[in-house]
C-alpha cells in the first residue's frame, strides 16, 4: 500500500444526467476543484448495485433519451478536462450487447484507465477480466471486492493479480452512510491489490481521511449525484454547487 501518498478522490457522475450541459458543468467543477479521478456511469435500466440517488439519475438520463452511443460525447468531454484517471462503470448487459471485447478495445483506444462492471463476477466473467489482462490492452477490468467477503472469494480475487480493485466498504448498495471500523481497515490492508478504490456511502472528508494509507482513492458517488439533483437544472448553479462541494474533498 502506498502509505505516503495522499489519498485521491474518485468522483462519480452519471452520463446524461441531469442533461448534457449539466453533466459538463459538474464535470468541469470536479476537475477545477482538484478531484483527481473521474468515474462515469453508463446508465442501465436495471441497476441492481446502485442506491436511490444513482438509480434515479440513470433513470432520468434514459427518460431524456440517453443511448449508449451517446456515451462518447460525455467521455470525450471528460477526457479533455485533465483528470489523472477516468474509469467507466456500467452493468453486464450494456457491454454484453455492445460486445465485451469491442467495448474493452474501444475503452482502450479512448485511454480509459479502468472499467468497472459489478455484475460480472470473476467466475462468470464472459471474457471481461481475461481479455483486458492480455498484452497490449492498457485498460484494466477492475474487479469489485466487498468487506467481509468469504475467504474462497478473496483467494479468487487475489489470483486475478489485478492492479486495481474497487472495494465496497459495506455490504450494501451505494448511498447509505458508512462507518470505517477496524475490520474494514484490516480487510483493505489484507487484500494485496496495489490500488484500491474504496467507496459506498462516503460523504465527508473525515471518512476519506480514515482511509488514508489504506486505499489509493476514496470514491464519492451518491453524494455528488445528490449535489447535482439539489442544484436544479441551471448549469451555472450546478457548477457552483459542485465546485463548492468537491473542493471540501480535495
Amino acid at each position: 500500500m502506498i502509505d505516503n501518498q495522499k489519498i485521491k478522490i474518485m468522483g462519480h457522475l452519471v452520463a446524461g444526467y441531469p442533461d448534457t450541459a449539466g453533466f459538463e458543468a459538474a464535470c468541469s467543477a470536479m476537475s477545477d476543484s482538484g478531484i483527481a479521478i473521474l468515474e462515469i456511469q453508463i446508465p442501465f435500466s436495471d441497476p441492481t448495485a446502485d442506491g436511490p440517488e444513482n438509480t434515479g439519475a440513470g433513470e432520468a438520463a434514459l427518460r431524456n433519451g440517453f443511448k449508449v452511443e451517446d456515451f462518447y460525447r460525455y467521455l470525450n468531454f471528460a477526457s479533455a478536462r485533465g483528470f489523472d484517471e477516468i474509469h467507466v462503470m456500467t452493468y453486464a448487459n450494456i457491454i454484453f450487447r455492445y460486445g465485451i471485447r469491442k467495448f474493452i478495445d474501444d475503452m482502450n483506444k479512448a485511454k480509459v484507465t479502468g472499467v468497472i462492471v459489478p455484475d460480472l463476477p470473476i467466475e462468470d466473467e464472459e471474457g471481461f477480466y481475461s481479455y483486458a489482462s492480455q498484452d497490449g490492452v492498457a485498460v484494466d477490468a477492475v474487479p469489485v471486492a466487498v468487506v467481509n467477503m468469504i475467504p474462497e472469494r478473496i483467494e479468487m480475487l487475489r489470483n486475478l493479480h489485478a492492479e486495481r480493485c474497487y472495494v465496497s466498504l459495506r455490504q450494501g448498495v451505494t448511498g447509505t452512510k458508512t462507518v470505517m471500523d477496524n475490520d474494514t481497515i484490516q480487510f483493505l490492508d489484507s487484500l494485496g491489490v496495489p490500488k484500491l478504490y474504496a467507496g459506498f456511502g462516503i460523504s465527508t472528508r473525515d471518512q476519506v481521511d480514515a482511509l488514508q494509507g489504506h486505499a489509493y482513492a476514496a470514491v464519492v458517488g451518491s453524494h455528488f449525484t445528490r449535489t447535482i439533483r439539489n442544484a436544479g437544472s441551471d448549469p451555472k448553479i450546478i457548477y457552483r454547487e459542485m465546485y463548492n462541494n468537491a473542493i471540501k474533498f480535495s
Binding site: 441492481t48 448495485a49 453486464a92 459489478p118 455484475d119 460480472l120 463476477p121 462468470d124 469489485v144 471486492a145 466487498v146 467481509n148 467477503m149 468469504i150 472469494r153 465496497s168 455490504q171 450494501g172 448498495v173
Partner: peptide, 11 residues
C-alpha cells in the same frame, strides 16, 4: 443461467 450478481450478493 449462471449467477451474474455483484459481490455483495454472493454470500
Amino acid at each position: 443461467g449462471g449467477q451474474y450478481v455483484g459481490e455483495v450478493l454472493k454470500p
